[in-house]
């Protein structure tokens, strides 16, 4: 356990003209912590995620990230080259739709290997061996390594996307509805896999989801957003078992019991 957070977010706001994307969001994220951001569509959670992952520039506020050398860097003052480098080495981004995060027309092996090649790996045999290893870790058979993701099921594609993101050993992974659009049984398998990987690798993650069960299973901490603002935050089980804000109570009471 380090005494310093990995990411410090302070008064982050994003406005689309006069419309609010997210408003005055602040939090710290420590290594190995999984933070769930929940809220219904339009609550600003995806805007927040995109700002944090520097895919979008905020209107105001700061976010600083502790680099591997231990120094904090202000994300929005980095050059685009530095940000993109961070994005493909120390960070991961798991999209809801795997097609947004994969190259659908190159093989599974190349999808996993791309990040390695991007950071200068030039040994085909080693790249392939690493790809095989990662495919097995996300439960994809080795004999599918030369198949294109187009030939994969939704769940497999999502697992491939995860492998592609984790191959460089990132410390922070952003996930946007990682189980959205999957069958319940496929969802459970993916969640379990994610949970195991996050624990084993000590990843920090920010998971945007509207599914409280996903938040309960994956995260230790939770932020509830409504109309761009954080209405409640705290330990995930505390927020879900003792929701205090009116909106959180509404969300929790809306869960269907099986």
């Amino acid at each position: 356990m380090t005494d310093e957070p990995l990411l410090r977010v302070s008064a982050l706001s994003k406005f689309y003209g006069s419309r609010v994307g997210c408003d005055n969001v602040s939090f710290d994220l420590w290594p190995g912590e999984v933070l769930a951001v929940v809220g219904e569509s339009g609550s600003g959670k995806t805007t927040l995620l995109n700002c944090l992952s520097t895919r979008l520039l905020p209107s105001s506020g700061t976010a600083s990230y502790r680099m591997r050398d231990g120094q904090f860097r202000e994300l929005y003052r980095m050059s685009e080259a530095e940000r993109r480098f961070l994005m493909r080495t120390d960070w991961g981004f798991v999209h809801q739709n795997p097609a947004d995060g994969l190259r659908m027309t190159v093989s599974a092996g190349a999808n996993v290997g791309e990040r390695l090649m991007a950071v200068g790996d030039r040994h085909y045999g080693k790249i392939r061996a690493t790809a095989v290893d990662w495919l097995s870790r996300v439960e994809i058979e080795e004999d599918r390594i030369d198949d294109e993701p187009r030939a994969f099921s939704g769940g497999m594609r999502q697992r491939l996307q995860i492998a592609r993101n984790l191959v460089t050993g990132p410390r922070l992974v952003f996930m946007d509805e990682p189980t959205g659009g999957l069958d319940v049984s496929v969802q459970a398998r993916l969640l379990d896999l994610l949970r195991g990987l996050v624990t084993d690798l000590g990843l920090a993650a920010i998971v945007v989801t509207h599914d409280l069960a996903v938040a309960r299973l994956l995260s230790q901490r939770m932020m509830v957003m409504k109309d761009g603002r954080v209405v409640e935050s705290g330990l995930t089980d505390r927020v879900l078992d003792d929701p205090r804000a009116p909106y959180t109570q509404l969300l929790v009471s809306s869960i269907l019991q099986v």
Partner: peptide, 9 residues
């Protein structure tokens, strides 16, 4: 008990 475990505020 739940307050002592941090599960209730």
């Amino acid at each position: 008990l739940k307050m002592l475990y941090g599960n209730y505020a």
